[in-house]
Design a protein around this nucleic acid. Structure first.
Lengths: 201, 201
DNA sequence: GTCTATAAAGGGATAGAC
DNA sequence: GTCTATCCCTTTATAGAC
């Protein structure tokens, strides 16, 4: 068993696994209990009901999805370096947690209110810093002008979408799981190139 | 009521709406019946059970998601024109059906076998034509070399992801629904520019 | 804290009248 | 084809012993 194997930790790990795979509606309390190797009644002892257990898990997972990594974008470094760092770290994280984006975005659609707490990015000032840098670089003629929203949408799209569409991409391009991993690995180099080339004046 | 308001059509429209919003596990037969303004028993009369009703709907929706529009990419026209056409048409379709991508990709994760029939793209020869064109353009020095998988992944990422992440983007960038529509409208021009600039030699 | 047993609600499916 | 009534399995949640 795991190192920090208290009952509560086992419940959280099990719930995380099952909720991410099946979503709130598709998950079964019995399945979570089995995965945690405990009795179903214990779930209710620790977290009164399914909703509360889910809420707890979702908030933790959502906080990972819009992660510390975003702080990279607020640092005082050249744009290109920040893009490379962001893509590299984010793709690593998503390779370890490939189902995370679909889970967060799916549940976010039906439960938008869960998200507000989890997202620190809006209050962090990162976007403002990024906006200043994009404007400065454009004024200096280093890049084409671009809004922070479009810049971020492009960066996140190129990084996250392949994981959302993994089954479809594997089907269309006849990739097995290892080939998909190689594809992602290759994109760690390519995405920053795409982004920076598209901004060239 | 709708023009072609047979019972079967009303069931399909209602089921489509509810399944897309809640998914297979989250949808309730009662809710679909209410939406269609018929009795729950009628659902079972027309489609023996929930699974079959879902399968019918999913196949139709999946066929729209990897749509006729993809044939644009196989045509004998300049790359730039094809990209513009594709983005413009696809973003229009997604604006009319903003929940469609999340639905298809979510259910595809748990039911990959449903998709095989719906995807005509692999058998269509479009990818081969596209591969030839990308290779020729690169050899002629018009664009940087790029694999069809990366080209398609970029094109689909930039087009589809914003709809998947709509609630998150609206939250982070403080957009209301109209502003989001304007954002998408703007991207009809921007995405082809990004794509083509990133391929410039 | 942990278990067994069971209540209570939810929801898919069917029988049978019209 | 359409409805009402109902069955019955599944799943959440609780009671109560240890």
């Amino acid at each position: 068993m795991e190192p920090n194997s208290t009952t509560e930790n086992r419940i959280k790990e099990a719930a995380r696994k099952i909720f991410i795979k099946k979503g709130l509606a598709g998950a079964r309390m019995q399945e979570i209990a089995d995965e945690a190797k405990i009795n179903k009644a214990m779930l209710h002892y620790y977290y009164r009901n399914k909703e509360q257990l889910f809420k707890k898990i979702f908030e933790e997972v959502a906080a990972e999805f819009v992660p510390k990594i975003f702080s990279i974008l607020g640092e005082d470094r050249p744009l290109e370096v920040k893009v490379q760092d962001f893509v590299s770290h984010y793709l690593d994280m998503l390779t370890r947690n490939p189902f995370l984006p679909l889970f967060v975005l799916s549940e976010l659609r039906s439960q938008p209110e869960f998200f507000e707490n989890a997202v620190g990015i809006k209050r962090s000032g990162i976007l403002e810093k990024l906006a200043v840098q994009l404007k400065a670089e454009a004024k200096a003629g280093h890049i084409k002008p671009i809004s922070p929203a479009n810049f971020m949408a492009n960066l996140m799209s190129l990084s996250i979408f392949p994981f959302l569409a993994q089954p479809m991409l594997q089907l269309i391009f006849s990739m097995n799981t290892q080939e998909f991993k190689n594809f992602i690995e290759e994109r760690k180099q390519l995405i920053p190139q795409f982004i920076m080339s598209s901004l060239k004046t």
